Amino acid sequence: MRFAPAAAALSLFLATTASVTSAQDPEVDPRAASLVMEGRALLAAGDTQAAIDAFEAALAVDPGYTPIFIELAEAARRDGLQGKAIGFYREALMRDPDNFAAISGEGAALVEKGALEKAKRNLARLESLCGSSCPETVSLQGVIAAGPPARLAAETAEAGPASN
């Protein structure tokens, strides 16, 4: 009992220190930033696997840099791995819940998987956070309007209505 006041004071101090420390934006490691730039260039050139390798190397150098997860998700989407991309977007959203690029990207990957209702929820969230004219909202609106890829639409039509 005699340690209770000291323990309470110490826990209050640690809680305050932790919240102040977590509120600061960490600086990105320059090596990680360089690897991300390299990955973006490789992705633009169409070398998806090399881009993924560069992004994963950047993640190894600076695991706290959230934008790397968005880059990995974009590369996975281009590789046709929408489920993996959604996982990367969700990791980014766990770290930064209001990241517009992650919300929009996850919505686009959901459309590509055929999950239009879930993608529309992402769109509604984006509209509430940044409005209907921000670039991420406009981009997701376009993807939803276009609908799932033709290949997925054909597979869904062939499967017919689901029966229980």
Rank of each mutant, 00 (worst) to 15 (best):
L72I: 08
A92D: 03
T66V: 14
R125H: 09
A124C: 00
F88C: 05
E74K: 14
T66N: 10
R95Q: 15
N99H: 15
A108D: 04
A76E: 08
A124H: 03
Q82N: 12
A119M: 06
E117W: 05
E71C: 13
E91V: 13
V61C: 10
N99V: 11
I86Q: 03
F55S: 01
Y89L: 03
G114N: 05
A85R: 00
V61G: 09
L59D: 09
A102R: 01
A75S: 03
A58H: 09
I70E: 04
G80D: 01
A115G: 03
E74V: 14
A58P: 08
M94V: 11
Y65S: 07
K84G: 00
L123I: 08
P97W: 06
Y65N: 11
F55H: 03
E71N: 14
A109P: 02
L72C: 05
L93W: 11
F88D: 04
A92H: 03
I86L: 06
A109L: 00
A124I: 00
G107K: 04
G64F: 06
Y89C: 02
L81V: 05
Q82D: 11
F100E: 15
L81F: 06
E56R: 09
E106C: 05
G64R: 10
A60N: 12
G83C: 02
G83A: 09
F100L: 15
S104K: 06
Y65M: 10
L110M: 13
E117D: 15
I68L: 09
K120A: 14
R77G: 04
A58S: 09
A58V: 09
I103C: 08
A115F: 11
L59K: 11
P63S: 07
R121H: 10
F69M: 09
E56D: 06
A108K: 04
L116C: 08
G80S: 04
F55Q: 01
K120I: 11
A101N: 08
Y65P: 07
G87A: 08
F100V: 11
A101L: 09
G87E: 05
E112Q: 10
R121M: 10
T66R: 11
P63C: 04
D98N: 15
E74C: 05
L110S: 01
D98T: 15
L123N: 06
G83D: 11
A54I: 02
F100H: 15
F55W: 03
N99G: 11
F88N: 05
R78M: 12
A119T: 06
R95Y: 13
A119V: 06
A102Q: 03
F88W: 13
A92E: 01
I103R: 02
A58K: 10
D96C: 12
I70M: 09
V61K: 14
A76H: 10
I103W: 07
P67R: 02
L59F: 08
A101C: 04
A92N: 04
A60R: 14
G64I: 07
F69A: 10
A109Y: 01
T66Q: 12
A73D: 00
V61Q: 14
L93R: 07
S104I: 03
I86S: 02
